[in-house]
Design a protein around this nucleic acid. Structure first.
Lengths: 269, 269
DNA sequence: CAGTGGTCTAGACCACTGG
DNA sequence: CAGTGGTCTAGACCACTGC
């Protein structure tokens, strides 16, 4: 790694900053962001480029400060924000690590459904059952959600999650074909652990953020059969788009949740 | 306000801190929090006690630093957290202000339902229609949600929100009787603006956080009639408990949302 | 013990607001 | 212009980790 990377902001040896230099190079906008934001951007670039992989430690604050020719405090503030966005995890005495799904106790990163007796542990892990997994061409709406063109190759997966033997979640998910070349039903069903962990380790795709939109619906015949409920049963329809670092959508998920024994929990602040 | 308030942590004139003094007084736990956390706690106390009211400015960072005998940076870090929790709003050049619902453009603080054409503006403000408002005694489950005893007096309100003339949300809400003494159906329906703003200005109750649990359900006959939908229509059932400063529950809300033209939007990170 | 992140300070200057 | 929050620095020491 270069020890003197090309910082595009001018920084005289003892002139803190002027506030109007910065990453404006190449942009017409006044740009004009504080130093720590620029540092944050540079660190983010290294995260995206894979310079440091999920689970690995990034350089120490002192090292980064030296690399970027700024004070430790400035690096610190940059990392503070990355940490607040869950892109990075600090561990006192050890270092700062790229966030990862692989070595993580939480089984489901974005799943907000939980048993009515809040006891997530007692119900044990979900049984995962892959119904279908095939490659096809993106329909118009799938393509739009994934920022693809219709007809682009996508991978479609359908699976059922059961808790204590009760089928509770029916999920259809679509992945852009290109980044997930080589993903098959077998790879998926043989893999033990979070799906997002597999995406990370095998395809270098880390999910960072997601948007959900939720509705109440009735299932069609096939959905009702897979979830073993009557067609009149109201279900939660959860459409989720998950994004990687640079806000690129990498997964579309359409879930049907049974809410007779579970509920979707959300904290507002 | 006392210029030399009783700080329970010992601080010699130039000894930064030892880390093991602090607010442990009165507690058996090792306690043991950093200075800025203690400062944050003290500011929080002042917020709760109403020393600074919603919308008002709190003292400047320099003033607070002098008051608490710490550096500006330490006060700053405390306020940073309060700001991140939306308890306080910073405005450069002006000061730091207690967060408020009153002078705020967002009509609905915790409502995550939005029109399918993301255009929140075009649909205009909701028509609010209070169906019912009465005082009664808390049932067991209402009492539990509000941390009351069953039989304690509560205020119950039922209302319908319509967008563009279409009834979309049916809400039942319960408020603890004591803090909301004097609240009547008339006060509610005559009031223009967010309900939470009225709670603030008239009753000094500021909602700070909320938990929601969401299900898909069918309405009963009465609910269906009020929302003008068939009984077979799947609806979103949203139960929300809203809390004041010290995590005291102050409102229970049970909403039924139509999701044919709107959806519940959520951001996960 | 050295190395890491975490806290605290003191002082400088910038950017914004309002009189 | 003075006052406020916002950024940046340099240096000190604390708490935790692992050798």
């Amino acid at each position: 790694m270069a020890s003197t990377p090309p910082l595009s902001f001018s920084q005289a040896l003892s002139a803190p900053m002027t506030g109007s230099d910065a990453l404006a190079a190449g942009g017409l906008t006044p740009a004009f962001s504080p130093l720590y934001q620029q540092i944050k951007g540079l660190i983010l670039q290294s995260l995206q480029s894979g310079e440091w992989k999920p689970g690995e430690a990034i350089p120490s604050e002192m090292d980064l400060a030296a690399r970027f020719r700024v004070s430790q405090g400035t690096v610190r503030k940059a990392i503070d924000e990355l940490s607040a966005e869950n892109l990075v995890v600090r561990r006192q005495g050890k270092g700062t690590f790229v966030a990862t799904h692989a070595e993580q106790q939480v089984q489901y990163r974005f799943l907000k459904l939980q048993p009515d007796n809040g006891d997530t542990q007692s119900e044990g892990p979900a049984e995962r059952n892959i119904i279908d997994c095939k490659r096809l061409r993106a329909s118009a709406d799938i393509a739009r959600s994934l920022s693809l063109r219709s007809g682009d190759p996508v991978l479609q997966v359908r699976r059922v999650l059961s808790f204590s033997g009760v089928p509770t979640i029916l999920e259809d998910l679509w992945l852009p074909g290109a980044p997930f070349k080589g993903l098959t039903a077998e790879r998926l069903s043989n893999y033990n652990g979070p799906m997002y962990a597999l995406f990370e380790t095998e395809f270098g795709v880390r999910m960072v953020r997601a948007d959900e939109s939720i509705r109440a619906v009735n299932p069609d015949t096939e959905q009702a059969a897979l979830l073993q409920v009557a067609m009149a049963t109201p279900l939660l329809s959860v459409e989720r788009v998950a994004y990687t670092y640079n806000d690129t959508p990498m997964e579309l998920r359409r879930g049907l949740y049974r809410t007779d024994t579970h509920h979707y929990r959300n904290v507002l602040s």
